[in-house]
Design a protein around this nucleic acid. Structure first.
Length: 292
DNA sequence: CAGCTTACCTGCCGGC
DNA sequence: TGCCGGCAGGTAAGCT
């Protein structure tokens, strides 16, 4: 389940394999992969002949700026992957994959080398679209807040925005318009580190607590990034098909029944926002006025 | 308008 | 063995 550290790992892996390449061909093999595009817009036409000039990211979104000034905007959703299959030997059939959604044919003009880029997506929550004039920053991302790895991330503004919300603190963490890049795994980890229950009313938290929470998000992101991301199954892998190992370090997420690494109380799992929340009932006390 | 719910989707797993 | 419900969850649209 890709959150910011996983997306950043993919972004870094993608960069040397696509930057400077010219797009020679585009095959869309599943309609949902480009569903964001307005009807009648030709996705392939906007890509063919263009050179990819970079790989950028904000939160969990990535975009590939193109020489035209447009950008190829993409989100991995739950199960999106970029992969670069080995070219088939002479006489061998073209390789394929049951979750193949989009295929790009690339040329490196510097070396004349051809390559194939796959966008795989089992659950089809991810996808790609063309952001017209979006090379600098796609207008589709105007509502997405800066993430803690962004040099222009404004801690004070983020803390103020979090404290302005009259909802459970976990709901705010998962809201990508406030601080982007946080998903269910890292929300649970950051809350555990800060000893905050997920249903605490964000507007009732002290400023220092929220500063500490955002710092915990930042450090858990940094640590996960060093480990190459988190993976529980084969749904998240980097462009080489390898998964990260941060899951060995998780204190709360998916640890129900196991002892809290801080106090030994068994970690609990509870339903919140139609998904699971993992917390230590001793370290993270249920608030008197919970906001579910 | 802020807060909250629901739809989207596939594969796996446990229960019967 | 095979069917079925539950679960995994990021995003955005559509509610109240």
């Amino acid at each position: 389940m890709p959150e910011l550290p996983e997306v950043e790992t993919v972004r870094a892996g993608l960069t040397p394999r696509v930057v400077g390449r010219r797009i020679l061909g585009v095959d869309v093999l599943h309609l949902r992969a480009t569903r964001r595009q307005a009807e009648g817009f030709d996705f392939a036409d906007a890509l063919i002949g263009q050179t990819i000039t970079g790989v950028s990211r904000r939160g969990k979104y990535m975009w590939l700026p193109l020489s035209s000034g447009d950008a190829l905007l993409t989100h991995l959703g739950m199960s999106g992957q970029f992969r670069f299959p080995e070219p088939p030997g002479p006489g061998d059939p073209e390789p394929t994959h049951s979750h193949l959604r989009v295929r790009l044919r690339l040329l490196d003009p510097a070396t004349g080398q051809l390559s194939t880029c796959w966008f795989l997506d089992q659950r089809t929550f991810g996808g790609m679209s063309i952001s017209v004039d979006g090379a600098e920053l796609p207008h589709e991302l105007a509502h997405i807040g800066r993430d803690p790895l962004d040099p222009l991330f404004d801690l004070g503004a983020a803390v103020a925005k979090i404290r302005s919300r009259h909802v459970g603190i976990k709901r705010v963490l998962l809201d990508q318009t406030v601080v982007s890049g946080i998903g269910n795994i890292y929300a649970d980890e950051a809350l555990w580190r800060t000893r905050l229950h997920f249903a605490r009313d964000a507007s009732l938290l002290r400023r220092g607590q929220v500063v500490e929470l955002v710092a915990a998000v930042s450090s858990v992101f940094d640590e996960a990034l060093l480990a190459g991301g988190t993976s529980f199954d084969s749904l998240y892998v980097n462009v080489n098909g390898e998964s990260g190992y941060f899951d060995r370090t998780l204190a709360a997420y998916g640890q129900q029944g196991r002892p809290c690494p801080r106090c030994g109380t068994p970690i609990r799992r509870a339903a919140f926002m139609n998904r699971s929340s993992h917390y230590c009932p001793h370290c993270q006390r249920t608030p008197r006025a919970p906001r579910w």
